[in-house]
């Protein structure tokens, strides 16, 4: 067995790094898909018809209760074999669909919690001012519902980033698969996998700190504006 070898490290590093764009790209694509589809869940769950509500809740629960890996395998290997509706997709698209769909159920819950947290007096005041249903959502409810959920949404970005290597199992070549390939060819796993760990750490840890800061900012956002405003108005006087 060989020990740690810096030559191997420096040889493997650029190769593993090549996979970073796939890893980041897949994270971003999955995340955007989840953000958008989360809205779809939130909307569907608000339809005030009991059977639909029950069905949507059940489907969301089903998606959340099955492992993302199983869902990936199903979409990539099994879906093309489903009669009539089945069709084959490339690994990247399958991964976006699989991981994106899985996490969209969580994101949908985040949106819902944000909407539920808006005081019902806000709905009543906007009815009293005769806003249309659409205006109530766009002008009054969503601007209040979304900002408090931003830290939670950020957390899901980091969680998804760490789940993305699952996609290597269906052939999406991110940093993990790059490192694995290098290891298999050179029988040296220690250095390339260490590089993978370091890269994940470098990207997740600062993001986590950023989100913490964002959280503090969101909790005090109206007070902040208040401070800025009162000082500027004093200046004007």
């Amino acid at each position: 067995m060989n020990n740690w070898n810096w030559d191997t490290f420096f040889e493997a590093f650029p190769l593993v790094l090549e996979g970073i764009w796939i890893t980041i790209g897949l994270t971003v694509a999955c995340y955007l898909f989840a953000l958008l589809f989360g809205f779809v869940w939130t909307f569907l769950r608000r339809i005030p018809i009991k059977p639909i509500n029950w069905l949507v809740t059940w489907v969301m629960e089903f998606i959340r209760s099955t492992p993302p890996l199983v869902q990936l395998f199903f979409i990539f290997y099994a879906w093309p074999m489903v009669p009539v509706v089945g069709f084959a997709m490339d690994p990247f698209t399958s991964a976006v669909l699989g991981l994106g769909l899985h996490f969209s159920t969580y994101i949908g819950e985040v949106y819902r919690s944000g909407i539920d947290a808006v005081d019902k007096g806000q709905w009543e005041a906007s009815t009293a001012l005769n806003f249309s249903t659409r205006q109530k959502w766009t002008k009054i409810i969503i601007p209040q519902a979304i900002p408090p959920t931003i830290p939670m949404l950020g957390n899901y970005l980091i969680i998804m980033f760490k789940e993305v290597p699952l996609a290597s199992t269906i052939g999406v070549v991110g940093i993990l698969q790059m490192a694995n390939n290098y290891g298999a060819q050179n029988w040296a796993y220690l250095e390339p996998l260490t590089i993978v760990a370091i890269l994940f750490l470098i990207l997740s840890y600062p993001s986590a700190i950023l989100i913490k800061k964002l959280e503090v900012k969101m909790n005090t956002r109206f007070d902040k504006k208040a401070v800025v405003n009162s000082s500027s108005s004093k200046g004007a006087v």
Binding site: D119, G121, Q122, E124, A125, A128, L129, N130, F131, S132, Q135, K139, I140, P143, Q144, F222, N229
Partner: peptide, 24 residues
């Protein structure tokens, strides 16, 4: 006018007053 005011917290005082006359 409500017991608990129900002002829109994300808008300034002026915006609170203006928004409905503009959009409604």
């Amino acid at each position: 006018v409500f017991q608990h005011f129900n002002l829109f917290p994300h808008m300034t005082i002026l915006e609170n007053c203006m928004t409905a006359i503009i959009h409604v």
